[in-house]
Design a binder for these strands. Structure first.
Length: 270
DNA sequence: CTTATCCCCTGCCGGC
DNA sequence: TGCCGGCAGGGGATAA
């Protein structure tokens, strides 16, 4: 269930696998992937060489030589994998297959089928309705204290909900926000307009630092999403209800906020 | 306009 | 063991 760090790791993998390779054939294995259709049929990508792979927020972009870009979002359970070509049925949950001139296949797997892909003319990815209001990338264009202060001052929404709003800044999801708020010692339910200048400064500075850390931490082994077999929880408080806070030793508590599971240390975060 | 709730899907886990 | 509710790191649509 990827957020910016996991999507960034995907971008690095895809860059190594795809740049300079030609996509010989495109096979859409689950039409649900195209439920919200883009301007061009995905199969148009066939025969084209991959020039670059980019990431913006939680979106991936494959720039192809023919002046088109394949845009993908992993949603909750999507992932790209690479295999040597073998004949026979696809592994379960395969939604898209890109056959490469190297004899390899890059597949998109997605258990819950929320993932989406679109093909757009180069430079026009922002014309997709979903990307039209997307805010600046949380890592590549870190939010300034001034902009965060301005946005926070305008709303009583909990700060956790505000930070997950992709129109303010793109890339943070449930885990990132939980961990960033813990590091900044701010309670998730605090109304955004109640934060002090010092707290807003800690937050703005802490976001890119956490993202860098999370990318590094999760690059160290194979990327397996939490909840799947073999997953390792590298995070400090996420999914650690009842375990001792590493700072004060008190118990981490679980609540819900905006319909999402939330973890916090009530004595360290206020 | 903002904010809260529901929905899309499927698998897994814990409790009974 | 079997069933069932609850939950899951996404975002959009809809209702208030």
């Amino acid at each position: 269930m990827p957020e910016l760090p996991e999507v960034e790791i995907h971008a690095r993998n895809l860059r190594a696998w795809l740049v300079g390779r030609r996509i010989e054939r495109v096979e859409v294995l689950d039409p649900k992937l195209l439920d919200d259709p883009g301007p061009l049929p995905l199969e148009t990508a066939a025969g084209q060489r991959v020039e670059a792979v980019r990431r913006d927020a939680k979106y991936l972009f494959l720039d192809l030589e023919g002046g088109v870009t394949l845009v993908a979002h992993l949603r909750m359970t999507g992932r790209f994998v690479r295999d040597a070509y073998v004949a026979g049925p696809y592994p379960k949950f395969s939604r898209l297959a890109l056959y490469l001139d190297s004899g390899e296949v890059v597949r998109f797997e997605d258990r819950r089928r929320f993932g989406r892909a679109w093909l757009v003319p180069a430079g026009e990815e922002r014309s997709l309705p979903e990307l039209r209001e997307l805010g600046p990338d949380a890592l590549l264009q870190p939010i300034s204290v001034e902009r965060l202060t301005e946005a926070a001052g305008k709303t009583r929404r909990p700060i956790k909900v505000l930070l997950m709003d992709q129109t303010l800044l793109g890339g943070l999801g449930n885990i990132c926000v939980i961990e960033v708020l813990y590091r900044a010692r701010i309670a998730p339910e605090r109304p955004a307009n109640s934060l002090t200048p010092e707290e807003l400064r800690r937050l703005a500075e802490g976001i890119p630092l956490f993202l860098e850390w999370a990318i590094e931490a999760q690059s160290r082994r194979e990327l397996i999403y939490l909840g799947e077999k073999g997953a390792e929880n590298v995070f400090t408080i996420y999914r650690r209800e009842g375990t001792p806070c590493p700072t004060c030793g008190g118990a981490i508590v679980y609540t819900t906020l905006g319909g999402r599971g939330t973890y916090a240390c009530p004595s360290c975060q206020s």
